[in-house]
Design a protein around this nucleic acid. Structure first.
Lengths: 186, 186, 186, 186
DNA sequence: CATGAATGAGGCTTCATTCAT
DNA sequence: AATGAATGAAGCCTCATTCAT
């Protein structure tokens, strides 16, 4: 069952949802197609399982980071950017998956995932609004700043290669710096 | 022929490459499948045609904007951000298409498109490096700043709705502002 | 296309709807499965086409018989019984098909066929009620008499063998006699 | 075990043999599939068990009715029609099942059931022939009369609804009347 | 007695593509 | 320049059945 999940994650990440056949996944997992259908209702449920696990992992990462940070907006922003950057690096493949394949979820599953995404949006927005209210962030457009920070972090999965020259810690430092710049942190 | 191109663009944008059948496209265009195959070699060529047209349109937009701008890094950055934002708004659907569906291009087509994308990257990088060299942009990480600006502009297609409250001009103003902040423009 | 229709009719009649695979039908018709799907939307539409054609044939037969008969209840009853008996003999296989496989039609098709069946019911009921009103038929239970006559005629398809001793004309004579007995025709 | 039998009966009656999956039956019975296979050899044996039980029940009903009736052809006919009508009403669903699903029995089971059906046929034929020989039934076509009576009774399962206006006793009275009419009982 | 897990065959349907006309 | 018809491969999924535990 874990093998099936992993196989689905890899196949979807490499080829995309529609380009992946259930046979592909079964073959990768080393099980028969019927065995796969014993554990999962169908291709849709597989996609959902993969996306959800990935999202939940992101949330756990964020919560840990926030819990460990001092209780002020700048520190919270740093924590969230750090967690996001690390997550994008650690789970590069699924990371892109999530952003791209949500649209292939049937409404019944989509709703469940969208709710989680909203939660994430509110998490970011909460922190930035707090900072603005406290006079720590001086940005004139908090919403666009938020979207810029998130987009910037998400994009890491597109170009970062772990075998490259930049270490993750160095990367975190840079993106924390850029994020503070974007919100105009004093 | 133009109808086929348009039909393909819409179908790919709405459903994605693999979820779109050639039948879909023919039906949308109001032609028979055999007629479609008379004009295009197959599904791959359709995708390529759609993606290329979209990219070339972007380039033309950028070149016009750069040509009309004063010859200094900050003005060039403003021009490029403005052109990109306007493009993402004007062609919201294909915009996402481009970013997502490149991966479904067979190597023979992919190479052609990747070359254009590299050109775009060099265009952005050239401007930012000029600014840094000239001491106008103070960012410590020009590459990451560039990626952040591009990612931020690309993301517009995900959330912007023309029927919303923000006008395009207002949007351009904000993103020009954010871009200057990101590169630490003096 | 006619070959496909015929193949479907035979396969459904021999094996029943659910026991017949689309492959069966294609093989019988001598075409590929994809060719079959070019002409018919699916297995359901095939079943519907077969059932409808059979029902319409029955109606045509009945209308001809009624049109050729003198305009009085007894003659009408004779005509309808004769037409029905001949139909059950002539199209023995589909005949049973109709009665059994209607239940496998999806609602969208089912409604269409049920409407025709209602028409048939009204045709029989009209004649018998006329006879009762005119005092020609003395049965105390016109509805049950009608059902008995129809059931009796339908059952012919279960046991009649064309190679047997009884000719169709003889069969018609007997069932006309039995029908008159059932409605207590004076 | 009784639960499995009942579940199979209901499923087969509602959906037909081929449209019913063994999973369906197990689910309805509230047991695992493996448990089902412990008690029954397979789907075929389930169908056979259901059909046989239903037929045997019919025979018992008939024998009781005949045993309780005076020993003359007309009374025997009345008894048999009464028993059959009551049976069709009491076990409406399985009743249709029997008539339709016999054809899905594999030869080994089919023979066993056909033998019972022949017994039933001889039972009816015996009574009617007795009546004809005794001069009580004046029908010119005893075989067709027999088939008509049986078909008429069988058809009850198609239209009778227990919540309707007609009581079973009233129904029996009518069909006894119609049966006597059909055989031309003096 | 009963179970969870697995299997291989087969179910219906759609695909991108071709070809004679 | 366009068509209706056809094709073989592949799509997702469910089937009746078995077996180790």
């Amino acid at each position: 069952m874990a093998a099936i999940h992993a196989a689905a994650r890899e196949a979807f990440a490499e080829q995309g949802y529609h380009a992946t056949s259930v046979r592909d996944i079964a073959r990768r997992a080393g099980v028969s197609m019927a065995a796969l259908y014993y554990h999962y209702e169908g291709k849709q449920e597989l996609l959902f399982a993969v996306l959800r696990e990935s999202v939940e992992d992101y949330f756990v990462t964020c919560e840990h980071a926030l819990a460990a940070a001092p209780d002020d907006p700048a520190a919270h922003l740093d924590a969230l950017v750090g967690a996001t950057v690390r997550y994008r690096v650690r789970r590069r493949a699924e990371s892109t998956l999530n952003l791209i394949e949500v649209r292939n979820l049937e409404p019944r599953y989509r709703k469940l995932l969208d709710a989680r995404v909203d939660t994430a949006t509110r998490m970011w927005a909460g922190i930035i609004d707090d900072g603005v209210r406290a006079g720590v962030f001086a940005t004139a457009w908090p919403d666009d700043a938020r979207r810029a920070v998130i987009a910037m972090c998400n994009a890491i999965a597109d170009w970062y290669r772990p075998e490259g020259a930049v270490t993750v810690d160095e990367l975190v430092e840079r993106y924390v710096g850029l994020a503070r710049t974007i919100v105009a942190c004093s």
